[in-house]
Design a protein around this nucleic acid. Sequence first.
DNA 1: AAAAAAATACCTATTTCTTGGTATTGAACG
DNA 2: CGTTCAATACCAAGAAATAGGTATTTTTTT
Lengths: 212, 212
Amino acid sequence: MLNFTELKIVHIDDHLLFAQGIYSLLGNETFIEKLVHAENFQQGLSISSKLQPDLILLDYFLPDSNGLDSLRHLKAVCQESKVIILTMETNPEVMKKCQGAGAIGFLPKSISKKELLDAIKNAMSNIPTFYFLLPISHSTQRPQSRLNILSKREKQIANLVAEGLTSSEIAKQLFLSDLTVNTHRRNLIQKLGLKNSAQLVAFIQNLKYSES
Amino acid sequence: MLNFTELKIVHIDDHLLFAQGIYSLLGNETFIEKLVHAENFQQGLSISSKLQPDLILLDYFLPDSNGLDSLRHLKAVCQESKVIILTMETNPEVMKKCQGAGAIGFLPKSISKKELLDAIKNAMSNIPTFYFLLPISHSTQRPQSRLNILSKREKQIANLVAEGLTSSEIAKQLFLSDLTVNTHRRNLIQKLGLKNSAQLVAFIQNLKYSES
DNA sequence: AAAAAAATACCTATTTCTTGGTATTGAACG
DNA sequence: CGTTCAATACCAAGAAATAGGTATTTTTTT
């Protein structure tokens, strides 16, 4: 009922070296049934439409199509497939547009294996994973760990939300106003690119396992 | 931040054989720092008050105290400790009283290792685990697996709730009335002994990992 | 065929969450 | 010594969830 089924994944990317990396990263994960690579959009589209994969990893910059169009075409042809965007350089605007166009994840190519696996697991539970990077001008910094965008207080509150406490219970426990807790909740959902508290709970619970 | 820390556990039970079983079951779990056994309530109380364990596994029938009083005394002395009740025979009334008195779990001694570990993990996330058994008169049946008390529809809806869909989104997706979905949600929370949807989400997410 | 369980749907009232804002304070950084 | 960020707190409106019911129709089980 609740297990990850064996996944069919299509990876569309013209960077063959990167594709090689993905393959060696994911190649011997047992939960993956099939991992197919396409080196341009046309090929990726036709493979995807035949295979109807569970997941598509899509490079945002392809020689024969731009990222947003690729995404829209793929979503049109494979409505059931989750799409995670991989990209070299990011800007928040592009990310938002991808979110709007139906991507369930948006990751820089500099992520670690664990981060990629997390994003895939999340995607399979319909939980979005959007990495919020610093604007390009500041991007000499290392890519931020997903949680470092959260402040201490926010982490604390996220955990209590994930235990099923209501805002006012959290407020009492931390000696805060309800309104403050509400603000933190709102910021949490917004920062993590989630939809509501239920997704926040799912996200936090997933983390518990992936971090250990 | 989010990992299971190394747990200190006290197990209070006069059945030495069962205690032995618990010990061999949990003894080499890496997330357990200390596992202490007490063979009566007095001993258990004094050990617990010194050790302030993360978790207390409490046999409901002890020679020197009744279950509910034991529970209350322990909660008074170790406010931070989670208490899971273990018992041979169960009735729903007793279970409810234990819930009211602050237990975070209530399990028959016939559970499997996996079920016990699940309950412990849940407890550490403040998620209750109450096994609803058939009334004693019917109890020749095997103890129900935790999920078998849920119908197909309920499982289906539980999964969608855990993905962060709202009731009306679920209704649309399954071609049901909102009201029906509401009823299922209510029954889910009630059947599983949970508090609200957030705990339902946490519970379902936890299951995903424990079942694989 | 009768009984039990599951799935469906409705009503009402209250609480909680969400979303749209704004604003003040103190700490940290350059 | 400003500027930015975190943390705090407030207002208001609307959506969603919760809790208390009841009730009808299928499906499953005995």
